[in-house]
């Protein structure tokens, strides 16, 4: 009566199959990620050497290393993240700490979401029109770095906003209660407490920025420039664009493949390290706040 009497409950094979299906799809997608990483580690590992990391390219980019591109990428990332760090932290602080619910605040939040959805290649266009042409910076590290900074702002603003919001209200109120002003409270309590999360966001963003290609295509990246930049107003090579050049427009593509695998691996490892560190930090932080 209650059950189909006296034998085991029905197996519901349909349910098991459905469960198996979603599990397979999920792990399958993850397996592709593992496949990409494994493939590049295997093929790129054969090229990787000290020389590869520290020497400039030679012989039509078929020999030598990738040092100029590596250095260029680091410069770009540094300029972008340093610029974006201040603006995004201040903007995030405003949204989380100082803004009363108002039209202005809603507008900014809406804009942050909107900006986050604009494709990076459009930021590249903007960088070309504004920094390279209108401001006359030319194709330079500064122009590219600023373009990348704009690109990473939405992500960073949201991150900073969440970081400030996660600081327990009680602490802020305690500080206000003993007579500290809002700004004092912010610099002495809220900012130090939120800093780990903000830094995590910056690390994550540098991983993203490092791998971006489209925004630097027209604002900074040099096709072939095997020297190291002396100032921020010079163009430079960069890892992602170098990889793109190697696989699509080298003079002898077959011969440049080993270099391409090496470059891809270096780029992959750098971004993996940065995103890995950030992700690890973030989930540790999340756990520690939860308890």
């Amino acid at each position: 009566m209650l059950s189909s009497p006296r034998h085991a409950p029905p197996k519901r094979w349909g349910e098991h199959i459905a469960t198996l299906a979603v599990a397979l799809l999920s792990w399958g997608s993850i397996a592709i990620l593992a496949g990409i990483i494994g493939f590049l580690v295997y093929r790129g590992g054969q090229v990787l050497s000290w020389e590869f990391l520290t020497a400039p390219m030679r012989e039509g980019m078929q020999k030598g290393g990738i040092a100029p591109a590596l250095v260029g990428s680091l410069w770009l990332t540094a300029v972008a993240i340093l610029t974006a760090a201040f603006i995004s932290t201040a903007a995030g602080a405003y949204l989380s700490e100082f803004a009363r619910p108002s039209r202005f605040k809603n507008l900014i939040e809406f804009l942050v979401t909107t900006l986050a959805g604009i494709p990076s290649v459009v930021y590249g266009l903007f960088g070309l029109a504004l920094f390279v042409t209108a401001l006359g910076l030319g194709a330079s590290i500064l122009a590219g770095g600023l373009t990348l900074a704009l690109l990473s702002l939405p992500l960073l603003i949201r991150n900073a906003q969440e970081a400030f919001a996660a600081v327990p209200r009680a602490l802020k109120e305690a500080s206000l209660g003993i007579g500290a002003s809002e700004i004092q409270t912010f610099f002495r309590i809220t900012l130090p407490m939120a800093l780990p999360r903000i830094l995590t966001g910056l690390v994550l963003a540098s991983g993203r920025v490092l791998g971006e290609t489209a925004p630097i295509l027209f604002t900074v990246a040099a096709y072939y420039l095997p020297t190291y930049p002396h100032s921020l107003l010079e163009p430079t090579m960069a890892l992602p664009y170098h990889l793109y050049v190697l696989i699509t427009s080298g003079t002898n593509i077959q011969a440049t493949y080993p270099m391409a695998f090496g470059t891809a691996l270096v780029l992959l490892l750098l971004t993996l390290c940065l995103t890995g560190i950030a992700a690890y930090l973030r989930y540790r932080l999340k756990k520690s706040y939860r308890v």
């Binding site: 209650l2 059950s3 189909s4 006296r6 085991a8 409950p9 029905p10």
Partner: peptide, 18 residues
Amino acid sequence: DGEDIYAPHVDPVHLRRR
């Protein structure tokens, strides 16, 4: 109804319908 609802052969889904 006289039946042990935690017995191994009981299907909880079926039980909840009753």
